[in-house]
């Protein structure tokens, strides 16, 4: 690990000021940053610890809820406002990592989680995300865990978060503060696909800090569900996951959310799948159709081709479970 200076800030303005310096990285739970620093993937010269900032509250916000960026994954998952009103978020959080890591990881950090692509995590390997133009060994290398959606010829790294998949399904908004003041970024715009600049992963600008996330009330929030498929029963990243939410009235789906995880370069909203559901009764047939629509345009590679079928089934199953549960 490269040497760095450490400081802990207690006020947001001070912290923001520090963010303008070169080589600064903000530290929250540390579960991504320290991991990557030890690998030599991240090499900040200054680490600014944000954990003393007053950004940890989870509270009602109108009909919705506001979640402080420093609230831990554990705190969010078990918070009564979340567990009851937004089951998909609670389920997604509890399917991620381990209890220890969830006690450490923050909401803001989770949104900024970086890919688990093995080539990215090995500084001795080329990687366009780490070093622009060095190449992407995953394209034709070992790519079982890599993405089939949102990919480019530069990068097929999977976005690893479970939480972000659920937040996207809930139309959450990410609130950030920077030199230019505060701005609100809808979850759908927060993460960006790699395109030709895989180093750019989010809409967050240098020096900005995520302050909180708001999750609105919605007709489908309470009828929401997360399904995660992985290589072992727990403590593993998703091979495929789906956050689904349905507003059903009069036997017909009024609105729907289908978001895929584990198969795309960012939390992947499948609007075509949602379209398959809306206006129809919630049946197995439409769930299968939604699954098929969700993976339209998928680009499978040597070792991850199974994800096309798996993602399809994950969507259909999540919807079936959701309706069965209700």
């Amino acid at each position: 690990m490269k040497p760095f200076a450490y400081s802990r800030e207690t006020g947001l303005d001070h912290a923001l000021a520090r963010g303008k310096e070169d080589g600064v990285r903000y530290l929250a739970g540390g579960t991504t940053l320290i991991d990557l620093m030890r690998l030599g993937v991240e090499e900040p010269s200054t680490v600014v610890d944000l954990r003393a900032l007053p950004l940890r509250d989870i509270k009602a916000d109108g009909d919705g809820v506001q979640i402080g960026a420093l609230a831990t994954n554990t705190e969010v998952a078990y918070h009564p406002l979340i567990a009851k009103a937004y089951p998909v978020l609670s389920e997604a959080l509890l399917s991620g990592a381990s209890p220890q890591l969830r006690n450490m990881a923050s909401v803001g950090g989770n949104l900024l989680q970086r890919t688990r692509c093995s080539y990215f995590r090995d500084p001795s390997s080329p990687c366009n995300k780490r070093m622009a133009g060095s190449g992407c060994p995953a394209l034709d290398g070992y790519n079982r865990s890599n993405a089939i959606l949102g990919v480019s010829s530069s990068c097929i790294a999977t976005h690893p978060s479970d939480m972000a998949v659920a937040l996207l399904a809930l139309d959450a908004v990410v609130h950030v503060r920077g030199g230019g003041g505060e701005r609100a970024v809808p979850m759908g715009d927060f993460h960006v696909a790699p395109g030709s600049t895989p180093a750019v992963e989010t809409a967050l600008q240098k020096g900005e800090i995520i302050t909180h996330v708001t999750v609105p009330a919605s007709p489908f929030a309470q009828r929401s569900h997360y399904v995660k498929v992985r290589d072992r029963a727990s403590y593993a990243f998703a091979l495929s996951s789906a956050a689904v939410a349905l507003d059903v009235s009069g036997g017909v789906v009024k609105s729907a959310r289908v978001v895929l995880g584990g198969v795309a370069t960012k939390p992947w909203r499948a609007t075509e799948a949602e379209a398959e559901l809306v206006g129809k009764p919630p049946t197995s047939m439409s769930f299968d159709a939604a699954g098929a629509a969700a993976v339209r345009g998928a680009v499978p590679r040597t070792h991850n081709a199974f994800k096309v079928e798996l993602a399809k089934r994950t969507v259909a199953r999540a919807l079936r479970d959701l309706v069965g549960k209700a």
């Binding site: 450490y6 802990r8 530290l27 540390g30 579960t31 320290i34 991991d35 680490v47 610890d49 954990r51 554990t74 209890p99 220890q100 890591l101 006690n103 450490m104």
Partner: peptide, 13 residues
């Protein structure tokens, strides 16, 4: 009182 992974925790923090 909360369990954490000490390997990903900076002592200084």
């Amino acid at each position: 009182g909360m369990r954490v992974n000490a390997c990903l925790t900076l002592a200084i923090a």
